[in-house]
């Protein structure tokens, strides 16, 4: 009877609550978040189930779920939660924890996209979409996806071939450096 459940990591709930600022323990499993979630049909573990996994200290299961990368950050869950839990912020926290823990992600395209996007901002101060697309494609191996859309986009002037850097790019790089440091001390 005294044996702990294999997934009962008591620090997980505390970690998630501290980092997200959201009171996950207040969740009483009404499932309103999952009901209104636009990507729930594609999720392996729905948002209300993620909340339960956190209660149970199921760190590995929560961090390895596809769902945290499918979340579109539309904030419907946060807006509608009767307990006022910022569920979208919990999803952000889980993504960061998954990356830090080096969880082998079945489908890490979300993370590869984020990395490509932020590298572009770090370099130019703004997003250079052509560069972002190329970097993301190389990282993800999804070389052919959407390639057919490029000519139409070029024709309509919707893809710039050269980056338009911010005059503030140097200061942006400094901010990235200091933010990385602050994030480590958080």
């Amino acid at each position: 009877m005294s044996e702990a459940l294999p997934w009962n990591d008591p620090t997980f709930l505390r970690d998630v609550e501290r980092r997200s600022g959201a009171s996950v323990s207040a969740c009483f499993q009404c499932h309103k978040c999952s009901t209104g979630c636009p990507v729930a049909p594609e999720m392996d573990v729905m948002s209300s189930q993620i909340m339960r996994l956190i209660h149970l200290g199921a760190r590995d299961e929560a961090l390895a779920s596809q769902s945290i990368w499918l979340c579109a950050s539309c904030e419907a869950c946060t807006t509608r939660c009767p307990q006022g839990i910022d569920i979208a912020a919990v999803m952000d926290t889980l993504r960061m924890m998954a990356v830090e823990a080096g969880v082998t992600l079945g489908d890490a395209r979300g993370n590869k996209f984020n990395t490509s996007f932020l590298s572009s901002v770090r370099r130019h101060g703004r997003v250079f979409e052509m560069g972002l697309m190329t970097a993301y494609k190389l990282r993800s191996g999804d070389l052919l996806g959407d390639v057919g859309k490029v000519p139409g986009m070029l024709k309509r002037g919707k893809l710039a071939l050269w980056p338009k850097s911010s005059g503030n790019a140097k200061e942006v790089r400094e901010v990235f450096k200091r933010a990385d440091q602050e994030e480590k001390n958080r």
């Binding site: 980092r19 950050s73 952000d92 996209f113 101060g125 911010s166 933010a179 958080r186």
Partner: peptide, 26 residues
């Protein structure tokens, strides 16, 4: 806004909370 820079959008708030606040504040 002269020399405006990126707000960080979703990639910033999904990756680094400090950055997600600092980029807009600039």
């Amino acid at each position: 806004i002269p020399d405006w820079s990126c707000c960080g959008s979703t990639p910033a708030h999904a990756s680094n909370t400090s950055l997600a606040v600092a980029l807009p504040v600039m």
